[in-house]
């Protein structure tokens, strides 16, 4: 009974995400494409959920839907209006697009079919993996992830500082003619 329901759910989510992913690349309205993208991300979060990775599913929605898609929509809103449509792609662009997508598909299918995935037996999976993830992230032993975690934090920090530097207003000082950075953003 459980098995059947899970199978039905899995295939519907999978079909849903494939269809929406196709819609993302074929839609000519860029904001609709963003909404379809949100659908793809939500259904992949649902797939994570079915694998028992609740935390990953939550973070997927938090980061991708709440962060990336919102920023995407925000950026599109600054540039376009409702009536504008994307140009129809030229033949060369279409061909190269199909070629790139097809070869990526071939490579990923080949890699996936060659990899052996260790399957967890029923019951081997911990009930709540949030605490386990937290411990792994703070573990500096051979199995821990504290170094990548800190490196990513540094990367994000530098990206934030870079963003501030770019967004800062610069003014030309009258006395020296040097470009000096205003400390206060008015």
């Amino acid at each position: 009974m459980n098995e059947a329901i899970l199978t039905v759910l899995f295939y519907s989510f999978a079909a849903f995400s494939v269809l929406l992913a196709l819609a993302v690349v074929t839609s000519r309205r860029i904001l609709r494409a963003a909404v379809y993208l949100m659908g793809v991300l939500v259904s992949s979060a649902a797939l994570f959920l079915m694998l028992g990775a609740e935390f990953l599913a939550g973070v997927q929605i938090l980061v991708y839907v709440g962060g990336i898609v919102v920023l995407l929509v925000f950026a599109v809103m600054l540039t376009r209006s409702v009536e504008l449509l994307e140009d129809r792609p030229s033949m060369i662009r279409k061909l190269t697009g199909f070629l790139a997508a097809g070869s990526f598909f071939a490579v990923s299918v080949a890699v996936l079919s060659m990899t052996q995935f260790p399957v967890l037996r029923d019951g081997a999976r911990p009930d709540s993996n949030v605490a386990a993830i937290g411990r792994k992230l703070l573990d500096y032993g051979p199995e821990g992830y504290v170094l990548p975690f800190e490196v990513i934090s540094l990367l994000l920090l530098s990206a934030v500082i870079g963003g501030i530097v770019i967004a800062r207003k610069t003014a030309v000082s009258r006395a020296t003619g040097d470009v000096e950075i205003m400390t206060e953003i008015q």
Binding site: L62, V65, G66, V69, V73, V76
Partner: peptide, 17 residues
């Protein structure tokens, strides 16, 4: 925190569309 992201999207899309 994650699902409240849908509300933001709703507002943004509503205003834009």
């Amino acid at each position: 925190t994650a699902v409240s992201g849908f509300s933001v999207l709703g507002i943004l899309l509503g205003g834009w569309s």
